[in-house]
């Protein structure tokens, strides 16, 4: 990264806040998230269940229903356009053509009664006004590119006739159809088997590089992040707690939560019969702790952590961490 990067910014998000009023109280799902995505990079947003990853990515595409969500944002710029100023109709034009989304569950994002080929044709017809035939030609080429064997025949299959991995590939084909500037993939491989997950991630990454698309990869799986992303945002309880280039994050995590998460991922090289755990549980979104949201689970917490919320603070090039006592390289050893 650094100087070498073409600083063309695809997405600029500043101070996104999303709350859901409920009968039990206010759910603060996202609390002031900033996100930058540059041309051709793969940015991972990683965090455990309920940390606000999906809400953030849906807000970026303006797909969150409001109500129930109450959304506030200072800046939401996509390829130089201010998305907050666009009408829903203008947004619809952008979605699919310039920005596309891939969800975890292919079965619910595909139309069960339409052949997958036809669903991809639609994208070309809608956004480019292609003829039926021209669209189908593109579709078949696209399916082939994404690694579907016998693409011409498979185009005539209905979603339920394809395996999970194959359906996920169809979603990729659909997302890449218009060569969008940005693709948001929310847990794209979580539902897949390990060997299929490896195939799909590889294809996703290859397509992204080949097409010059930027990718926001939303996941709870650090190993997916390590093998796929260029830069990483770690989210906890609605806030970004650490931001770093992927290599820096994995070689020297600074936030105690990141350190704990990494230690908790089982590895083939680990010791037997012993699992490193983070004590406690993720706070309830209605009743978050005082001070640093991580303090009840943090080994390094001090009085200040209990009282005061740390800010996201720069720590070297391209790195930020939200912690009063970030772990330096030297301190990583003893956890």
């Amino acid at each position: 990264m650094g100087e070498g990067r073409v600083m063309e910014q695809v997405l600029k998000l500043r101070n996104l806040k999303v709350v859901f009023p409920t009968d039990y109280g206010l759910i603060r799902a996202v609390e002031g998230v900033d996100l930058d995505i540059y041309h051709r990079e793969c940015v991972a947003l990683v965090g455990e269940s309920g940390s606000g990853k999906s809400v953030t990515s849906q807000a970026v595409m303006r797909l969150l229903d409001s109500p129930p969500a109450l959304i506030r944002v200072d800046t939401l710029e996509f390829a130089g356009q201010d998305l907050t100023q666009l009408t829903e109709q203008q947004m619809q034009e952008i979605r699919g053509k310039e920005m596309a989304m891939i969800f975890q569950d292919a079965m619910t994002s595909l139309n069960p009664v339409m052949t997958v080929g036809k669903q991809i044709d639609e994208v070309y017809r809608r956004h480019y006004g292609d003829s039926k035939q021209a669209a189908r030609e593109k579709t078949v080429k696209n399916l082939e590119l994404i690694g579907i064997p016998e693409p011409k025949e498979r185009a005539n299959a209905f979603p339920h006739q394809l395996s999970g991995g194959m359906r996920q590939r169809v979603l990729l084909a659909m997302a890449f159809a218009c060569m969008p500037k940005l693709i948001i993939a929310d847990e794209p491989t979580t539902a897949l088997d390990v060997t299929i997950q490896a195939q799909v991630l590889k294809t996703l990454r290859g397509m992204q590089r080949g097409c010059g698309t930027s990718l926001l990869l939303v996941t709870h799986d650090l190993s997916v992040v390590a093998s796929t992303a260029d830069r990483v945002y770690v989210m906890y309880a609605g806030k970004i707690v650490e931001k770093a280039p992927v290599k820096d994050l994995f070689t020297a995590p600074h936030h105690p939560y990141t350190v704990g998460l990494m230690a908790a991922v089982p590895r083939l090289s680990d010791e037997k019969k012993k699992f490193t755990q983070i004590p406690g549980t993720v706070p309830s979104p209605i009743d978050k702790p005082s001070g640093c949201y991580f303090h009840p689970r943090c080994t390094y917490a001090t009085e200040r952590c209990r009282r005061e919320m740390p800010r996201l603070t720069p720590m070297g090039p391209d790195r930020e961490v939200r912690c009063f006592h970030p772990l330096s390289v030297g301190r990583n050893g003893h956890d």
């Binding site: 390990v194 490896a198 190993s223 390590a226």
Partner: peptide, 17 residues
Amino acid sequence: AVLDINFSEQKETEILP
């Protein structure tokens, strides 16, 4: 196919077709 988080050990692996 076990993706490793040891970043330095990210390796070219054979993916099962």
